[in-house]
Design a protein around this nucleic acid. Structure first.
Lengths: 346, 346
DNA sequence: TTGTAAGCGTTATCAG
DNA sequence: CTGATAACGCTTACAA
């Protein structure tokens, strides 16, 4: 393998010192025009590019921020990444992405690997397995090493770092209120197990909305799906569980699902059971992605403004990276949500 | 910001030399048990982790591979990434991902940034804009610097690097043959402009399949969508174009779409125009993703085995990275495709 | 105007 | 068994 050209090689070729080459390439006025031109021409010809690794070592800065997320397929995450990239690039930062695949071990490994030199800070959403195990030592260690973290989406509140979240409870209430207003009498929720905090909060919003309207929440109508790890046949299990829900409670006329997939699957199952949407059954999802838009009927959903979340997260992180203060207060920014009405509700 | 602890600091604290610390932490037998224990305990307590940047500089190896893709939302890409990660991790490599967002400039910038020290090699799919401009200097420069590249999906054949592809022509033929066998008499294709090579090849397969059955391809039935850059209203444009196609050619009874989105949109438009699927119209897509599976009716599609593609790409790349030979032959691996029959065909 | 040298954190070699 | 030193590629203060 050919090696990239270095200052040293240029210096040797041209019979000058490394320092001179370095300065010449930075257009330093210390160096004579003549020498500069010679060196610059040579460097250009050989397509010299400074070695980032060496620069990082010297500056103790990588100008890179690391994103650590559980999965990459979600439209929501891709929007967040877009937002992060937008402000990061504007400020001269690059972005690298690591995936945990919802696994604790992969999260830890990725984190350690990135934390040990590759990046200046993290923006992350925690894996389900980590939430389940409630083991956050890797986060605390990273923070203790002086590397800033910004959490979004799935956050854990007792970690000392900035957070960008939405008000899950309020957002869920918006959705359920809409169903109630649309005259649904028996509203079910398809949610996650409680260890996933966004699921828990959305469930809480559902319950509160019902209570606000003096409807007694029925445990039977709260389906907590266990999908700790996304496996191949996991969709089938999901379908089965939702089907049972409908069979046991045939008069359900409204469903609030805490994510896109649950919502789409609900519609599919319901259609197979002969329900007309939105006539017999109204469905609202959470997170606006391709699935929601392209479903038929298209899905009414709570949108999270992922791009905005990403932008804010990146801004917070970069600010912290570049701040001199060793201990500034941790901030939590709440991003607005909105209900997007489509065909799955009346 | 607190700094991470270094060998030097440990050495000073413990009153030994840096070299001793380094060796002790590597459990070198040169060092006495006593000293080793003392140093290891101390390092553990302070959570010492070697600085990757320094290691990379020393070893001229980063043990990470860079993935450069146009977009992150596609199920296909996420499968490829999974495949890459699987074999990369097994061989002790980490993976970082850069996004071009289909933009030439971002592709170049990302490439240069990663190429200058951060990674040992690339796995990439080229952006549409790059294909359009046909400017591949960044690829050639990277290769000339001795950094191996493996291309997949959207490849350009005259670049000297390994490639992992599918036989787009054959795959398209499979799909169109299926439609013909299912008695479709007027089959349209929704494809990309020709500069996207996978689109061009799939169009070619469509034409060949028709010819094989002595059906004369009609230019009117070949819709080449221009979606160089994915903008917000791009779906609307797509819908309009497809709608026109159906209005002008009302007797279309089969559609082959070169990607998921085109296929889903076709079904949506057709349903709005009152077509029943698959009774009046049969649709086959390309690339098996969430959209295909969750569409209603679910979509018959050509699957690309993205994970396999990723695995092979990673294996090829790592082999090249670790090979001593400065010039080994470039290889092109063709991965099988398969037609997955669902509800959108009879 | 140019060169020298220290330093970023690590490892490997060689001397003590 | 332990320590000093050079090297990876680069920047920069300082010396020539």
């Amino acid at each position: 393998m050919k090696r990239k050209i270095t200052l040293k090689q240029i210096a040797k070729e041209l019979g000058v010192s490394i320092g001179t080459v370095s300065k010449a390439l930075k257009d330093s006025k210390e160096i004579s025009e003549e020498t500069k031109e010679k060196i610059q021409a040579f460097a250009k010809y050989y397509n010299y590019k400074p070695n980032n690794i060496a620069l990082s070592l010297k500056n103790r800065k990588t100008k890179t921020i690391g994103i650590l997320i559980p999965e990459i397929v979600h439209h929501f995450f891709s929007k967040v990444i877009q937002g992060i990239e937008k402000v990061a690039n504007k400020k001269g930062y690059n972005v690298i992405i690591g995936l945990s695949n919802e696994s604790f071990d992969k999260e830890v490994i990725n984190m350690e690997m990135l934390a040990s030199g590759s990046i200046d800070g993290f923006i992350m959403s925690i894996s389900k397995e980590t939430l389940l195990q409630q083991d956050y030592h890797h986060l605390n260690e990273t923070i203790n090493q002086g590397m800033p973290i910004v959490m979004f989406d799935r956050v854990v509140s007792d970690i000392r770092c900035d957070k960008v979240i939405i008000n899950d409870v309020e957002a869920a209430k918006k959705a359920v209120n809409k169903l109630i207003k649309n005259n649904c009498k028996k509203i079910a929720i398809i949610t996650t197990k409680d260890y996933v905090n966004v699921g828990r909060l959305r469930t809480q919003g559902y319950v509160e909305a019902l209570n606000d309207h003096e409807i007694a929440p029925e445990p039977e109508l709260i389906l907590k799906v266990d999908d700790k790890l996304v496996t191949e046949d996991y969709i089938d299990v999901l379908e089965e569980e939702i089907k049972s829900l409908f069979l046991i409670n045939p008069d359900i006329d409204g469903v609030f699902a805490v994510n896109e997939l649950y919502a789409i699957t609900t519609m599919k199952v319901a259609k197979n059971l002969g329900r007309k949407i939105p006539e017999d059954l109204q469905v609202i999802g959470f997170t606006d992605g391709v699935l929601s838009r392209h479903a038929s009927p298209s899905l009414t959903t709570v949108t999270q403004y992922g791009q905005k979340i990403g932008e804010v997260a990146a801004a917070l992180l970069i600010e912290k990276i570049e701040s001199e203060a060793s201990e500034d207060p941790v901030r939590t920014v709440v991003i607005e949500t909105e209900l997007i009405e489509r065909e799955s509700t009346k």
